[in-house]
Amino acid sequence: MATLLSQPHGEAIGYSFTQSTGVPTKEHSFYPYTDNGGSTLGITGSDFAILAGDTRSVAGYNINSRYVPKVFKIGGDDETGEGAHILLSVVGFAADGQALKERLDAVVKMYKYQHGKSMSVGACAQRLSTILYQKRFFPYYVHAILAGLDEDGRGALYSYDPVGSYEREQCRAAGSAASLIMPFLDNQVNFKNQYIPGSGEGHALEPKKADPLSRDTVEQLVRDAFTSAVERHIEVGDGLQMMVITSGGIEEIYYPLKKD
């Protein structure tokens, strides 16, 4: 008892609760992302834009569901999507994709209420980039593609990385089978590595010039891209959801894919 009493006030007794302990910081074992697989694809034409995605949702080797859409109408009615004039596709982590879609949808609606006119695709594209960059250090883990018609009525397509870098393009494939689809698109949409026969001697051939494609051609390209991706990628399949935006509005087409 003498030793306990002789101790100076509060010291050496390990009961002072606030003292630092030098316990090493523990690493978080919780990983807040998952990959829900699937692929998306967008192509523009002179007066339309097509955005498509497969409808399979996966978690590892499990198929969660055979119908989870990845392409959404932005700025329309909540249930029917009526009145929308912009399309967004998201692929990667589906929960982030859903959150991103809902935020952009709210922004586009607020814009209309506040300014009395619809948001242009260009403005929406810049705003989406800002939304993504705001979460630069805890990103929305998605590859987004935005589609609509620009001020001149031409098809507009913008593609993004998870932190908001974006660019306007003629065509873009994203998601797990992007590496399978994109080279096909380079060749068939932008006519890369295609030359005009007999236009020159040896290697001095004239490259084939890329012109906007017709809607029928583009729809067939999308179908071909996905049927091929289904053959070679296990996360792609079940169904193909295609949204076509023209001056007449948005048309949705569903096309079954292999379910294996």
Binding site: L4, G14, Y15, F17, S20, T21, V23, K26
Partner: peptide, 28 residues
Amino acid sequence: NHFPEAWGRPRDDVYGPYNPSYLQTTGP
């Protein structure tokens, strides 16, 4: 001991100091 925190706890001089990492209120 007049520190309420110490009441009912094993005595340091008998059992050695209690590992304070279990009592921490600071840290991550």
